[in-house]
Amino acid sequence: MNHLEKEMLALRNEVLDMWALVYSQLEKTKGALLKDNKDLAREVISRERRVNAYELKIDSDCENYIALYSPVAIDLRLVLSLLKINGTLERIGDFAEGISRFVIDTYEKKYDSLIREMRLEEMFDELLEMLEGSRKALESEETKMSGCLFAKDEYVDNLYDQSLQKISEYIKMHSEDALTCIFLAILSRKLERIGDHCNNIVEEIVFYIDAKVLKHAGKHKEV
């Protein structure tokens, strides 16, 4: 392995480490919400700084790699992908932090049944699988599972739609809880956005490995 390859490997491993951190943030956020564990929520908030530090470090390392080594072909695609994945992981970290703040500031046990009906646990599980699946895709440089990951995003979108329905029904019966219900709708929306971000990550991996641009492909078809 020459020194260029070593530098590239180091950059890739740094992103994979950040990935593991963001995965753990999302997993802990799930535990904090579903078990009303405010300590776990506080841990997520305090570790958000580490996610941000990773983002800054990786941004700077990508910039240096491009400036010093002028990558081309598959190397260029990898750096560009890592740069975008980096920003996307940071956004997912932000969402996890936002949900954790909701757990600390607003959440009460009495909403447990609503959360079950909203199927938020299922949404979390799907998202964690997407995050883990996309990480494995990059690690193994294999895009076979991309279709399955895209399908999961669609499933999360459906769960989101259904969760809004449940919230709407709940508000009709408990108008005094309307504000918390709005927060729960926003929370569900955040999960749905995490699905979109995971989708974007998979698209970046396909761009890196197969040199195909999938971005907005679905939307074009609809037009």
Partner: peptide, 18 residues
């Protein structure tokens, strides 16, 4: 095309310094 996604592996190996 050559510098973003060459068809041949040997081209890629050459331009990326491998």
């Amino acid at each position: 095309k050559i510098f973003l996604n060459p068809e041949k592996e040997s081209t890629q190996n050459y331009i990326t310094g491998r």
